[in-house]
């Protein structure tokens, strides 16, 4: 029963997502809102604002630096999770070995 319910929920959410996907602007559409406001402003002002010819760097590290801060924190959190998980596994193994002897 629970499985059937979960399957129905997944199908319903999938249908909603696909339906919503049709409302997105086409890939590379020059009239999409993202292409008419932000992208142009970034490309026009990047060199003037930060004297950096590579405007991708300016976007990543200046205009969207909050985003990049979050990204690097995500990377670091992944490493921390590996560290904690594997280390606790090791400790459990060692304790188990101690009980056997």
């Amino acid at each position: 029963m629970g499985r059937v319910l979960a399957f129905l929920v997944i199908v319903a959410v999938g249908v909603v997502l696909v339906y919503a996907g049709f409302g997105l602007p086409a890939f590379g559409d020059p009239n999409a809102p993202a292409s008419t406001h932000v992208s142009d402003a970034y490309i026009e002002h990047a060199y003037h604002d930060a004297h950096t010819p590579n405007f991708v760097t300016v976007m990543i590290a200046d205009y969207r630096s909050f985003d990049t801060l979050g990204e690097s924190i995500v990377v670091f959190t992944a490493g921390l999770a590996c560290f904690l998980l594997l280390r606790s596994e090791r400790r459990r193994k060692r304790q188990g070995g101690g009980q056997q002897t």
Binding site: S72, F76, C82, L86
Partner: peptide, 16 residues
């Protein structure tokens, strides 16, 4: 951050 994280993940797996 990326350097420390990648090296740390590798060391975790190998030490494990």
């Amino acid at each position: 951050a990326v350097t420390g994280t990648l090296v740390s993940i590798y060391d975790d797996l190998v030490n494990f």
